[in-house]
């Protein structure tokens, strides 16, 4: 389905543009955080900017523009928004768990030991803390 965008009223163009730029700006800030932040666990927070209001803003902008141009509700995009916001927590959680598991198995002292085995803390902390290990 395609709509004629030249029939778009000015208010819809302005409102939609604000949301589009806001969403894209938040996505950019998230990517900037991904590139600049110092450790994996802090970088884990950066993409959620893109997937919460980054995607939400762009989807809202697109919905405003299409609804106004087609003169009927176009809610198609909301699926993309719902999809991004429900799947990203799952991927981030799995990645976080994988990273914790890998760091623990390498004896990285900056990561807390497994929950429920606090009494073995002395064994876990036996390795001296190292600065940013360059492992793959």
């Amino acid at each position: 389905m395609s709509v004629d965008l030249s029939a778009l009223p000015v208010w819809a163009a302005i409102a939609g543009s604000v949301f589009l730029v806001l969403g894209a700006g938040l996505t950019l800030i998230g990517a900037l955080g991904l590139a600049r932040l110092p450790s994996f666990y802090t970088r884990l927070h950066a993409p959620t900017l893109a997937t919460s209001w980054g995607a939400g803003g762009m989807v809202t902008g697109s919905m405003i523009i299409f609804t106004a141009a087609a003169a009927r509700p176009v809610l198609h995009e909301i699926l993309i928004g719902i999809f991004i916001t429900t799947t990203t927590p799952i991927t981030l959680m799995m990645l976080g768990r994988a990273a914790v598991y890998r760091d623990r198995s390498e004896g990285d002292a900056r990561v807390p030991p497994a929950l429920g085995v606090q009494e073995r803390e002395d064994v876990q902390l036996a390795m001296p803390p190292t600065s940013e290990p360059e492992k793959t």
């Binding site: 965008l5 030249s6 778009l8 000015v10 543009s17 604000v18």
Partner: peptide
């Protein structure tokens, strides 16, 4: 007018 705003955004 609206097309100009939209394409800039």
């Amino acid at each position: 007018m609206s097309l100009v705003i939209l394409s800039a955004a």
